[in-house]
């Protein structure tokens, strides 16, 4: 739960814990919480929140802890406070299932309203929640095109310069001597960027998995891994197969 601890800390030099990158000519900051900030547009991207995942499982008979939504929202609050964006884009799979936003407890709903105050908020539809959100601020959309970038949930199969997508929950493994560490990551080759999953109970899929095949130029692909309290950037060739 290190992101939650980090969210509660006061950090002066937050920028040094993040990684900077450029996607299709647009400067971007990959922060240690797994959020992407585009300073020129004052736009913040988070992806795959999977809110109410515990409740979604409980509806199907697996009584997972009900604390995931609160934890994810706390981290999101910290991220929004840190960057103070004008626009927030949540890149799909905002809720773990279709009825998630309709069943959202009131206390969580008001936290989201609080966060959205004074900003534009765009909920991109994902495969888990294709029908959009119910009773929340902001608007729902399948895609967003803005500032030369394309924001969508699932990455498109063909080359798509300037695409910011989620869905695949990229993670990567680094090995040194006998130890290996696997962490969620941002993945970008300078043309396209895949977002790490932001929700606290979301798993990861390795960058070398088949599902990722063909998405990136491996020569320029860099994984920005979410470490315990900062982002580490590692070239694709140095990742463990």
């Amino acid at each position: 739960m290190n992101r939650l601890a980090l969210a509660a800390m006061e950090i002066e030099d937050f920028g040094s814990l993040s990684a900077r990158t450029v996607i299709a000519g647009v400067e971007a900051v990959c922060d240690p919480f797994g959020a992407l900030y585009l300073p020129a547009m004052r736009l913040l991207v988070v992806s795959d929140l999977h809110l109410e995942k515990g409740a979604a499982f409980a509806r199907r008979g697996m009584l997972l802890p009900p604390y995931d939504t609160l934890a994810t929202l706390k981290i999101l609050e910290a991220v929004i406070a840190r960057h103070d964006p004008a626009i927030v884009v949540s890149l799909g799979d905002n809720f773990h299932d279709r009825v998630g936003s309709a069943h959202l407890p009131e206390s969580f709903r008001s936290r989201i309203e609080q966060m959205a105050r004074g900003r534009d908020w765009i909920w991109i539809n994902g495969n888990h929640d294709p029908d959009g959100t119910v009773g929340l601020p902001g608007q729902s959309a399948d895609e967003l095109h803005y500032g030369g970038l394309a924001f969508r949930h699932e990455p498109s199969a063909k080359a798509a310069p300037g695409e910011i997508a989620g869905h695949l929950h990229p993670s990567a493994t680094v090995r040194r001597r006998d130890k290996s560490v696997r962490r969620p990551c941002f993945a970008t080759d300078g043309r396209r960027l895949l977002m790490p999953a932001f929700g606290v109970t979301t798993g990861g899929l390795d960058l070398r998995h088949r599902a990722m095949a063909g998405l990136f130029e491996h020569e320029t692909l860099v994984a920005h891994l979410l470490g315990r309290d900062r982002v580490y950037s590692v070239r694709f060739a140095n990742l463990l197969a």
Partner: peptide, 12 residues
């Protein structure tokens, strides 16, 4: 620990 990541990142 993260030092594994740190070392790998230093190369880059």
């Amino acid at each position: 620990h993260d030092h594994v990541l740190a070392e790998a990142a230093e190369d880059l």
